[in-house]
Design a protein around this nucleic acid. Structure first.
Lengths: 135, 135
DNA sequence: ATTTATGCAAATCATTTGCACATAG
DNA sequence: CTATGTGCAAATGATTTGCATAAAT
């Protein structure tokens, strides 16, 4: 199935370059400003298509909407369990991790994904403040 | 907030012992046979409560319903991208992985999660068969 | 007695889909 | 031309929530 170069696709890609790990909805909001007629379904369809083609990376987020990343190079993510924001993790990629698995029930392993969870600096501050108030 | 020991909680835990990495819905189906009056909301509420208390492990699954695991000990998972089934991975746990991260934007890292993706033996067979047919 | 839990239905949120129409190649 | 893409609204699927009632402590 050959894909086509539509105006929508181009604008969505431009939005991806501006935004940082956006959700489909965030892309939709950004694109809407320049091109109000666009449909959210089109945004989803194009993001998914690009992810399949390897132009984008789709990052599944536990307890939240998927996020998309222009950085296609393999890397890991960390998510704030308080506010949900996602950042890249500066850590070497385990390129041989898949070959380390001895007993994976005969799986053909294709990829792996590491997601760290923690509290971001902003939320740390917020929590400290609200803890003080409680006293 | 102190929790109570209800009949529902007990039956849900029993179902968890029988099932393997079930989704909330699978637990609901299993429990319904013995106790048809149970509500799906009760199943969700109890599974989440037990996960918070550390009695169960909640495994977020990319592109699918969360799964719950009686094995609370830290371990990793592999998911078949074809049929969605999830298995445990027999691989040592990276207990010091979180301390390796140098630049995580000042995060307090609490935990990490590794999910492998691949094709399970069953689906491998299915794919081989259907490829033959296409010829 | 008081507070937590339950069952039900309705609400929510992210995402997908059917369909008629538009448009890229 | 003709297959792929779009916009819209409705459908889906997982999960949560409001509320009146029930049950555990």
């Amino acid at each position: 199935m050959k894909t086509r170069n539509t105006l929508q696709k181009k604008i969505i890609m431009e939005a991806m370059e501006k935004l940082f790990h956006p959700t489909a909805d965030e892309v939709f909001c950004e694109v809407s400003e320049e091109y109000p007629a666009i449909s959210k379904a089109t945004v989803y369809r194009n993001l998914n298509q690009m992810a399949e083609q390897g132009t984008l990376l789709k990052i599944p987020i536990p307890d939240g909407a998927d996020r998309f990343d222009i950085t296609v190079k393999n890397h890991y993510h960390i998510r704030c369990s308080c506010c949900g924001k996602v950042y890249d993790v500066d850590m070497p990629y385990f390129s041989n991790l898949e070959s380390q698995i001895t007993d994976a029930h005969g799986f053909d392993i294709k990829s792996h994904e590491i997601i760290f969870a923690g509290i971001c600096p902003d939320c740390k501050l917020k929590i400290e403040k609200s803890t003080k108030k409680e006293k």
